[in-house]
């Protein structure tokens, strides 16, 4: 194993260990994120320290009109955590939730990098495409 490969391997291992998962998801693809994952990550950034499942779902619905189910949001959050993009913390639940805790998500550096890379590649794909008004709107 040469040095670069070793570094990549240890980084992956560190991510795996940090996420607290064994390799349920293919962490090889840690830099590739889908459109819904993009939305979820952006919602987490927007909400800051108030990002938990329901708030993220509402943020996406409010900004994009997409009515994602709570199950889809949680499955995505779990996948992003396994990839090492999000950090999980827990907060108090309160009477409204029957005392059940909230699980707050915050962005980690690899998540920020992956989101930036994903948005940049979208920008690059858009540049030079004659979409007229649509392109201007997407900016």
């Amino acid at each position: 194993m040469d040095r670069t490969e070793h570094r990549r391997h240890t980084r992956r291992e560190r991510l795996r260990r940090h996420s607290g998962h064994s390799n349920f998801y293919n962490v090889e693809y840690d830099a590739v994120i889908g459109s819904f994952e993009q939305m979820v990550l952006l919602a987490v950034v927007r909400l800051g320290d108030r990002a938990y499942g329901m708030a993220i779902r509402e943020e996406i619905a409010e900004r994009t009109g997409r009515q994602a189910s709570l199950g889809a949001v949680y499955a995505t959050l779990d996948r992003l955590t396994a990839k090492g993009f999000l950090k999980v913390g827990s907060g108090p639940g309160g009477a409204i939730r029957g005392g059940r805790p909230r699980r707050f998500f915050t962005m980690r550096a690899p998540g920020r990098r992956a989101l930036e890379a994903s948005l940049e590649s979208l920008q690059r794909m858009l540049s030079g495409v004659p979409l007229g008004d649509l392109r201007r709107k997407l900016g």
């Binding site: 329901m54 709570l70 199950g71 779990d78 409204i96 939730r97 059940r100 805790p101 909230r102």
Partner: peptide, 24 residues
């Protein structure tokens, strides 16, 4: 029934969110 589909580590949080949404 829905909660049983959720992995154990997320179960309480998921049910909490459902209850919060219901209550609101």
């Amino acid at each position: 029934a829905a909660a049983r589909l959720v992995p154990l580590s997320y179960r309480q949080t998921f049910v909490g969110d459902l209850l919060e949404q219901y209550e609101r």
